[in-house]
């Protein structure tokens, strides 16, 4: 009954159980946080707007992104992944979502930021539908915990429009 093996086994089981319970509690404690993030995005300029040889439109945008995501951080937050996606509808596609800029926020101190950038990833349509197109800019964030469940949410900003002519 009280052999070495039994004691080692009991100790290991107990330690793993406690660790699992603590991880679960840390993850559940995230639910008590109700964040109030804010964001603004301006399109400063259309750097270029053209039609490729294969018939797809490409746009390069200059953007000004400012956001305050500090309230997303809790003690169980490892990082927040934030990205700005352009979202629009075309006759062929019910949804087109293209990430224009993204970043990793490692700590709460960096969660209030302001950045001026061109789009980091190519903004290419499937087809030639972008002239005069209305689009939404959406700031998404994905909260990666130290352990447990991941959270995601977004702020949709609408009312943007691309020019009628290529330039």
């Amino acid at each position: 009954m009280h052999s070495f093996g039994y004691r080692a086994n009991a100790l290991l089981t107990f330690a793993v159980t406690i660790l699992a319970v603590m991880c679960a509690m840390a993850s559940l404690s995230d639910n008590f946080n109700s964040p109030t993030p804010s964001a603004q995005v301006q399109v400063l300029n259309i750097n270029w707007f053209q039609k490729h040889q294969d018939g797809n439109d490409e746009v390069s945008l200059a953007l000004n992104v400012s956001a305050n995501l500090q309230s997303l951080f809790t003690w169980n937050t490892k990082q927040v992944f934030v990205f700005l996606a352009i979202e629009y509808e075309t006759p062929m596609n019910s949804l087109n979502q293209i990430s224009l800029w993204d970043g990793i926020i490692p700590a709460k101190e960096h969660a209030k930021f302001w950045i001026q950038t061109s789009n980091k990833y190519q903004f290419v349509d499937q087809g030639s539908n972008l002239r005069g197109k209305d689009f939404n800019l959406t700031l998404h964030w994905h909260v990666m915990p130290k352990t447990g469940k991941m959270f995601a949410d977004k702020i949709v900003m609408s009312g943007y429009r691309l020019p009628q002519e290529y330039r």
Binding site: F81, L95, Q97, S99
Partner: peptide
């Protein structure tokens, strides 16, 4: 949707890859 972390298999590769979606085009 964009931003989700998906696990995918590429033809001709055995080991699945865990990466984030950056572009989505959904047919109507």
């Amino acid at each position: 949707r964009a931003g989700e972390i998906v696990v995918f298999n590429v033809d001709g590769r055995e080991i699945p890859i865990v990466h984030r979606v950056i572009k989505v085009h959904e047919r109507k």
